[in-house]
Design a binder for these strands. Structure first.
Lengths: 129, 129
DNA sequence: CCTGTTCTTAAAGTTTACTCTAAGTCAAGA
DNA sequence: TCTTGACTTAGAGTAAACTTTAAGAACAGG
């Protein structure tokens, strides 16, 4: 059992954000103590792990909420969930490929400007003499 | 020479956005015809290519504007520009590594749910008999 | 000449994902 | 008991990057 602060530390999300996510349906409702205080289980942490994973790969909170709601609705939503994740996976792969292409361009530019910089500096050094 | 619509088509940015970028200093001022109409050169397109590249790899418009302004300020800013690009490049690499890690998790989940789905479907098929 | 494109400024609106505030109550651990 | 920490609702605020609107004027190609 973890307090909201524990979970905040573990996930890097603030307590505020954790409550916000719960309100928005991104986290299945968390069990409470007799006094109404949230008690996160290891299972909740697991679920949060997937949520962060989806979020950090660019899935919108809305879609994540949909996914979580499907999960809660039971086995008959398995096909839709598989479809969602598969599509998301393809998006991520596509984005990474694009990213790699852009990275190559940036690398090229770094090298290009580095060469320019060297030329410039040796020119400066000569003039200083 | 290209009109703003030509450039819009080529870059995927709207004419609105192109003017907005210019106003915000993300694009060096574009030459105009006698009548005041923007005439983009191949060189402008080149510059836009780098700008889109930086934007699509997550650099903020503000930072891009700074970079463009350094470029216009001349050779003595070469070191700073190299530093900016190098740092950005490292960020991109780090983000891609993180992405790959998340992708592995998503892939694992896709497989996991696919197995569950198969089980579920064969169970359903049996019950239908 | 007509039509469609482009120009201007200035400001309001949109979306996403938080983030914070207020104000007051309640719970948990030393 | 005292002091953190947690709870609530509801709504305002924030930041980034657009996006749209309005309204009128000027330009360019057939």
């Amino acid at each position: 059992m973890y307090s909201i602060q524990d979970v905040s530390r573990k996930t890097g999300l603030t307590a505020h954000t954790l409550r916000y996510y719960e309100k928005e349906g991104l986290i299945p409702s968390i069990e409470r103590s007799q006094g109404g205080i949230r008690q996160y289980t290891d299972e909740d942490l697991e679920a949060l792990g997937l949520i962060c994973c989806l979020k950090n790969t660019g899935m919108s909170l809305q879609e994540i909420a949909r996914f979580v709601q499907l999960t809660q609705a039971g086995e008959h939503t398995l096909r839709e969930r598989v479809n969602m994740l598969t599509e998301h996976r393809e998006n991520v792969i596509a984005r990474m490929a694009e990213m790699q292409k852009y990275l190559d361009k940036v690398t090229w530019k770094v090298n290009y400007f580095s060469r320019k910089l060297e030329e410039y500096e040796s020119r400066e050094a000569k003039e200083a003499k």
